[in-house]
Structure formats: C-alpha cells, structure tokens
C-alpha cells in the first residue's frame, strides 16, 4: 500500500517525496539509466522514481550488498512501471507475465500512442490511449485452424519400409 501511495504521489506531482540519500557510486545513475530505457524522459520524475526504488530496495537489502541493492532497485523500477502500465491498460491483476510484457513491448518498441511519462503523470490516462495500445499488442500467431496431416506410408523394394505412425 505504501508503494501505491508513493506512486500516486509521484503520479500526481511528478516529484517523489522521498528524502534524497547518498548512494554508492554509480548505483543511482544505473537506476536512472534503466528508467530512461523504459521511455521515461522527465528528469524530475526519473530522479524521484529512482530515489523511491532505491529506498524501497534498501529496506530489503543489508548495507554493503551493493549489487543486490541495485538488482532490487531495478526490479522495483520495472514493477512500478508495470503497475502504471496495467492501470493505463485496465489490465486485471494476474500472475501471468505475458499480457503486461506484451503491453510493455508495444509501448517501448513502437514509441506508442502513450508516452511513458504519461503513465506516471496521470493516474487515469485517457482510455483511447489504452485502446490504441491494445490494438498494437504483439499478436505472433492467428487462432489455430488445425488439420490432420497423416504420415504417408512408403514401401520399398530392397529397403526396409516405413510404417504409418499416425
């Protein structure tokens, strides 16, 4: 719940309310870079989110475990992004990672109808944007229309023959 509240604060104000801390060198920069790779561009939004993610990660990791801290912060950043995206797409919560991954791919690989910043700026992004994103979700295959394709038995002179297996 804490996380949702923080997210909403970030989403409405665009700035995190967390107190800035000093992090081991390079850690915050990496989280910032990750958020940028998710399509976020507003500097203050990114800074705030990075701080939040690191603070959240810090609570779960002991001091000194720098690599683990970074990993948790990255996980947290992705989780927050997914949460915001799911809300924009009105996706129901699910353990299945595929739908949200598809939405993320559509958003990140198309430049999309929805800017990543908007996911956090507006708690309720316009429904058309979600609809448009839904239309460009990756559909790798059409519905199956199966037909049976039986193996043809081949019989040979001089050689061993095949036998029908299906």
């Amino acid at each position: 719940m804490n996380q949702v509240r923080t997210l909403e604060k970030v989403a409405t104000s665009g700035v995190a309310e967390s107190v800035s801390q000093s992090w081991p060198p390079g850690i915050k920069e990496r989280v910032v870079a990750y958020l940028q790779s998710l399509g976020l561009s507003r500097r203050d939004l990114i800074e705030g989110l990075a701080e939040d993610c690191l603070n959240r990660a810090r609570r779960r990791v002991g001091r000194g475990a720098v690599e683990e801290l970074l990993k948790r912060a990255i996980e947290e950043a992705l989780r927050r992004f997914d949460h915001a995206l799911a809300r924009a797409m009105r996706l129901s919560p699910s353990k299945d990672p595929h739908p949200i991954a598809a939405a993320r791919a559509a958003l990140l690989l198309t430049g999309g109808p929805l800017a990543a910043d908007a996911l956090f700026e507006n708690p309720e992004p316009p429904s058309e944007a979600g609809e448009m994103l839904r239309e460009i979700l990756p559909r790798s295959t059409p519905p199956e229309a199966p037909v049976s394709m039986a193996e043809q038995p081949l019989r040979f002179w001089l050689f061993k023959s095949t036998h029908q297996s299906s």
Partner: peptide, 15 residues
C-alpha cells in the same frame, strides 16, 4: 538488457 526486446521475447514465450 533492452527492455523492449526483453518484453517482446517474454510476451511471445509459450507457457
């Protein structure tokens, strides 16, 4: 590492 590439790959993986 690229979030777009990773997400797409994840989305297409069969269960």
């Amino acid at each position: 590492a690229d979030p777009g590439t990773y997400s797409l790959h994840l989305a297409l993986l069969p269960d």
